[in-house]
């Protein structure tokens, strides 16, 4: 069970955003994706999430090759992305946000609110955080609770691989710890996590492996237990150790 990216390339006009990228993420592991600004992290994640089509390369999910037409196709294949801005509608409750686009309805399209609310509360309660009422509008939640709501949306529909874009940015220290604990919990459940981050400390805390991009190319992939902070920084800055 794994996601395998092979020979992925993408250009925007004459600019090569990423080139010849190979990356494998196994179920149940957390892989950090690091790189300086412009290294190609966002492009790679957008391709994996189906938001952008690659110019070359293949994506295999659990042995099947996919060519995602859009993010819905990626979600159907079991890949969900949690964007840095969390993509929440602040005026809507957590229940509505979790089920937006995949509502539980009767055959006439009317919402089965009770079923949605029950499931949403179960998901939120299942995380190792202080539970909160899923009827609360997202705009009234703390930063950590908003992150939990967005994570709940990515896990609500059986995603097997989750892409997290800077999940700990703009959070309080306690909220960061909560989110990192949830990331580890999800991996322990067998979900493969790809985590884009600028914070090396958080990556070291939670990731099993780290993939480092430099100027659109894969500079190296290292097991976290077998690498050092200096080596990672060299790969980020120079593209080689």
């Amino acid at each position: 069970m794994s996601v395998v990216l092979s020979g992925i390339a993408k250009s925007y006009g004459a600019v090569k955003a990423i080139e010849d990228i190979d990356l494998t993420v196994e179920a149940g592991e957390v892989v950090g994706v690091l790189g300086d600004n412009g290294a190609g992290k966002s492009t790679l994640m957008k391709i994996l999430a189906g938001a952008t089509a690659p110019d070359a390369g293949t994506i295999m999910v659990d042995g099947e090759t996919y060519n995602f037409a859009n993010s819905s196709a990626a979600r159907d294949a079991g890949i969900a992305m949690l964007y840095q801005d969390l993509a929440l509608c602040d005026d809507m409750s957590v229940v509505h946000n979790i089920f937006l686009g995949r509502e539980i309805t009767n055959r006439f399209g009317f919402l089965r609110y009770g079923a949605m609310r029950k499931r949403a509360q179960e998901i939120v309660n299942s995380f190792s955080v202080r539970p909160f009422d899923v009827r609360t509008p997202s705009g009234h939640l703390s930063g950590g609770q908003r992150q939990v709501s967005a994570l709940a949306r990515t896990t609500a529909f059986g995603s097997r691989y989750i892409i997290l874009d800077e999940p700990t940015s703009a959070l309080s220290p306690s909220a960061r710890d909560e989110v990192l604990a949830i990331v580890r919990d999800l991996a322990d459940q067998g979900i493969g996590i790809i985590m884009v981050s600028h914070d090396l400390g958080h990556v070291r805390k939670v990731c099993d492996r780290v993939a480092i991009l430099h100027l659109g190319r894969m500079a190296g992939i290292r097991n976290m237990a077998e690498t050092s902070q200096d080596e990672i920084i060299s790969l980020i800055v120079q593209g080689h150790a």
Binding site: A87, C89, M92, G101
Partner: peptide, 24 residues
């Protein structure tokens, strides 16, 4: 208030980027 269409309509106005990402 109670239909999928209404819920999505609120999302389109509240956060069109999010709505688009979710396939709406």
């Amino acid at each position: 208030a109670y239909h999928r269409v209404g819920m999505r309509l609120h999302a389109v106005g509240g956060n069109p980027t999010a709505a688009k990402r979710l396939g709406i």
